[in-house]
Simulated assay, not measured.
Amino acid sequence: MNSENEDEMSYDIQVAVATHKPYRMPSDSCYLPLHVGAELHPDVCTDMQQDNEGENISASNASYSELAGLYWLWKNSYAAYKGLVHYRRHFRTSDSIKKSSEDRFCRIATGEDFASLFEKTGAQIILPKARNYVIETIDGHYRHTLPGEQLDAARSAIEGACPEYLSAFDAEMAGTKAHMFNMLVAKSDVFDAYCEWLFPLLGNVERCLGAKNYDAFNARWPGRISEMLLDTWLVTNDVMWAEMSTVSPEPVDWIAKGKGFLAAKFLGKKYGKSF
């Protein structure tokens, strides 16, 4: 093995794959299959790391979704680089042969892919490529698809708890691009600092929002609001990022996604399920 590869492989990277059900997992050693919501469903995924061990918010998985996994990694992992992906959404490898493989799991980024990108760019965090909604703002898209009072509560919470972040939040809401999915791989100090800011702020958002009689789909608002907060934190703290494409182990129904997007935009039909 040459010295360049040795440098890459020396990166201590742990990327949790958040899942709530048995599912095929990436084979690369950087990945840690993580059962989120183990406190609620202890008999599922018993062969993987449980998120109710150590300091955790596993019991809040019904509303916090994959953020229960983010919290667990923050409190229980001591890797030099930490990250979170989803069982059905991953970062894509840069290997030209692998990324065209018929086996979609071969297209998933490896620890070496992450190490190489950190080395090449000097970035502190790797994010999925920003989503561009083109015909509407981030604020408009959220309000068309989900309860708008959640955004209002987020802004109020920022204004009250950390007003220095308000200008970045407002700028993001007025734009059309944002880093979504609660996916990231970051240097541990950056990862931990973000979590230290995010989770107390979500508690403030909940207080600003007040009691709401949401159904199960809309009760998962913390995971969706957090997608609005990542860029706000990165911009305010001048954190340098790099981007990777994403890949799904399953074919994506882009027609259904497109129909849902247009129906929300032009017909006022809010989302009632994930696509």
Results as ranks from 00 to 15, higher is better:
residue 3 S to W: 07
residue 3 S to Q: 12
residue 4 E to V: 11
residue 5 N to S: 09
residue 5 N to T: 04
residue 6 E to T: 10
residue 6 E to R: 12
residue 8 E to S: 06
residue 12 D to Q: 10
residue 12 D to V: 07
residue 14 Q to F: 00
residue 18 A to V: 13
residue 22 P to C: 07
residue 22 P to V: 09
residue 24 R to E: 02
residue 25 M to F: 13
residue 27 S to V: 15
residue 27 S to D: 09
residue 27 S to T: 12
residue 28 D to F: 11
residue 28 D to R: 12
residue 29 S to R: 15
residue 29 S to D: 12
residue 33 P to C: 14
residue 33 P to K: 09
residue 33 P to Q: 10
residue 34 L to P: 11
residue 36 V to I: 15
residue 40 L to M: 13
residue 42 P to F: 04
residue 44 V to D: 10
residue 44 V to R: 14
residue 46 T to M: 12
residue 46 T to S: 13
residue 47 D to L: 02
residue 50 Q to V: 02
residue 52 N to F: 11
residue 54 G to K: 05
residue 56 N to E: 09
residue 59 A to C: 03
residue 60 S to Q: 15
residue 62 A to D: 15
residue 64 Y to H: 15
residue 66 E to M: 07
residue 68 A to S: 15
residue 70 L to Q: 11
residue 71 Y to D: 03
residue 73 L to M: 15
residue 76 N to K: 05
residue 78 Y to R: 13
residue 78 Y to E: 14
residue 78 Y to A: 13
residue 78 Y to I: 01
residue 79 A to R: 09
residue 85 V to Q: 11
residue 86 H to Y: 07
residue 89 R to V: 06
residue 90 H to S: 10
residue 90 H to E: 08
residue 91 F to K: 03
residue 95 D to G: 00
residue 95 D to A: 04
residue 98 K to A: 14
residue 99 K to S: 00
residue 107 R to K: 13
residue 108 I to W: 06
residue 109 A to W: 08
residue 110 T to F: 08
residue 110 T to R: 14
residue 111 G to W: 01
residue 114 F to R: 05
residue 117 L to C: 00
residue 119 E to K: 15
residue 124 Q to N: 13
residue 125 I to R: 01
residue 125 I to C: 12
residue 126 I to G: 06
residue 130 A to L: 11
residue 132 N to I: 10
residue 137 T to E: 03
residue 138 I to G: 00
residue 141 H to A: 02
residue 142 Y to G: 02
residue 143 R to H: 08
residue 143 R to D: 00
residue 150 Q to N: 07
residue 152 D to Y: 05
residue 153 A to R: 03
residue 154 A to D: 02
residue 155 R to C: 06
residue 155 R to P: 05
residue 158 I to Y: 08
residue 158 I to P: 07
residue 161 A to D: 11
residue 161 A to P: 01
residue 162 C to N: 12
residue 164 E to S: 10
residue 168 A to T: 14
residue 169 F to Q: 08
residue 171 A to I: 03
residue 172 E to P: 00
residue 172 E to D: 08
residue 175 G to W: 03
residue 176 T to E: 07
residue 180 M to C: 14
residue 180 M to Q: 08
residue 182 N to M: 06
residue 188 S to I: 01
residue 188 S to K: 08
residue 190 V to N: 00
residue 190 V to W: 01
residue 192 D to R: 04
residue 194 Y to R: 08
residue 196 E to F: 08
residue 197 W to P: 09
residue 197 W to R: 06
residue 199 F to E: 05
residue 200 P to A: 10
residue 200 P to F: 09
residue 204 N to G: 09
residue 208 C to Y: 04
residue 209 L to Q: 09
residue 210 G to F: 07
residue 211 A to W: 12
residue 212 K to I: 01
residue 212 K to V: 04
residue 214 Y to S: 06
residue 216 A to C: 07
residue 218 N to W: 14
residue 223 G to V: 04
residue 227 E to R: 09
residue 228 M to L: 10
residue 230 L to G: 10
residue 231 D to M: 14
residue 232 T to Y: 05
residue 240 M to E: 12
residue 240 M to N: 11
residue 241 W to A: 14
residue 243 E to L: 05
residue 244 M to L: 15
residue 244 M to A: 03
residue 244 M to N: 03
residue 245 S to P: 02
residue 246 T to D: 02
residue 248 S to I: 04
residue 251 P to S: 07
residue 251 P to T: 09
residue 257 K to C: 10
residue 257 K to Y: 10
residue 258 G to P: 00
residue 259 K to H: 05
residue 259 K to Q: 12
residue 260 G to V: 05
residue 262 L to N: 01
residue 265 K to C: 07
residue 269 K to W: 01
residue 272 G to T: 10
